[in-house]
Nucleic acid binder design. Structure first.
Length: 326
DNA sequence: CAGTCGTGGCA
DNA sequence: TTGCCAAGACT
């Protein structure tokens, strides 16, 4: 029932047989192996999803919006396999936003375990508090309201609105960008970072019907996750193999600018990870001397610790000690 | 806008 | 072994 601007595509017109993406076929015969019209992809991908979707806890019919939201936070840059156990423990302990909101933020950081990017735990905790204080403890169904929550960007807002509430949004993550890059654009990989063109393409490809659009969103993501993978796509098992612009072009290799390789050894991120691991394992405050044992170089160690404090992931306390935020 | 922010598995 | 990658957000 909510209308929101961006990823929410323009309002559906009353529904006469006008620009609905179903009633066109003759026009697609003119040029030879051009990019497939998106509507030609709807049926095969939706059918494929119906048969091949993974069973995941946050997809259960009774999972609820909080489950979707927690999973989306955890899945930001972290693979499903590593999320699953942490997700189960999290939902067991904090089945509702209010349960998490009542906890100390440090407990969220601790329960985050080794999912990585622990600021997400802090933001999820802050989002839970905002949901309690501003939305009566219910995950909002409005895209703009979701977007206003800490840690919720364009993708996550659209994902929650679509997956949890069945709304019609362009849900554009790295999987979807890759599927469209190959199937529609014909390139081996999507652009390095999301572009406005990605969003426009995803919006134009969205089925007109709301519930169909919601299934389409999760289906295209799943296709990217299981079949149209980054490294070795399983094109032989792909439902749109015969429609894919990239395959039809002979699956040319990636020719764009080099992707940035993210080194980790020796970075502040590694040091932060070590420091936080010690604090997660401890129940109470940890003397700084114990943290000092984490990393040999003092300058970098101090910088990392200061950064954690600045981020709110660590609290300095008495006796030259540190702890997870209370 | 480019940089920053964890962690671990796999080709 | 090592580089690449995994449902991004924020500054």
């Amino acid at each position: 029932m909510s209308d929101s601007p961006l990823p929410h595509t323009p309002a559906r017109t009353p529904r006469s047989a006008s620009s609905a993406p179903a009633a066109r076929s003759a026009s697609a015969r003119s040029s030879a192996p051009a990019a497939p019209s998106a509507s030609a992809l709807h049926e095969p991908i939706l059918d494929w999803y119906a048969e091949n979707a993974r069973t995941l806890p946050w997809r259960e019919p009774d999972a609820g919006a909080w489950a979707v939201m927690v999973s989306e936070f955890m899945l930001q840059q972290t693979p499903v396999a590593r999320v699953l156990p942490a997700y189960e423990r999290w939902m067991q302990r904090w089945p509702k936003p209010a349960d998490l909101a009542a906890e100390a933020p440090g407990e969220a950081v601790r329960a985050w375990d080794r999912l990585g990017y622990p600021r997400r735990a802090l933001r999820l905790h802050a989002a839970a508090k905002a949901i309690v204080e501003e939305h009566g403890g219910v995950v909002p169904d409005d895209h703009a309201a979701l977007l206003a929550l800490p840690g919720v960007g364009t993708y996550t807002a659209a994902a929650i609105a679509s997956f949890a509430y069945g709304q019609r949004h362009a849900v554009v993550d790295t999987n979807v960008r890759r599927v469209f890059a190959r199937a529609i654009t014909g390139s081996a990989q999507p652009t390095i970072s999301p572009t406005a063109a990605d969003l426009r393409l995803a919006i134009s490809a969205l089925p007109a019907d709301e519930s169909t659009a919601a299934r389409w969103a999760i289906a295209t993501m799943e296709l990217g996750a299981l079949i149209c993978t980054a490294r070795t796509p399983r094109c032989a098992d792909c439902p749109i193999q015969s429609n894919c612009a990239w395959v039809l072009a002979g699956s040319p290799p990636y020719d764009g600018p080099p992707r940035k390789g993210q080194t980790y050894e020796g970075t502040d991120r590694q040091v932060r990870g070590r420091l936080l691991a010690v604090l997660r394992a401890a129940q109470g405050p940890v003397p700084k001397s114990e943290l000092d044992a984490c990393w040999p170089e003092q300058i970098q160690r101090e910088r990392a610790l200061d950064g954690l404090v600045a981020d709110g992931l660590v609290d300095p306390v008495a006796n030259n000690s540190y702890r997870l935020p209370a």
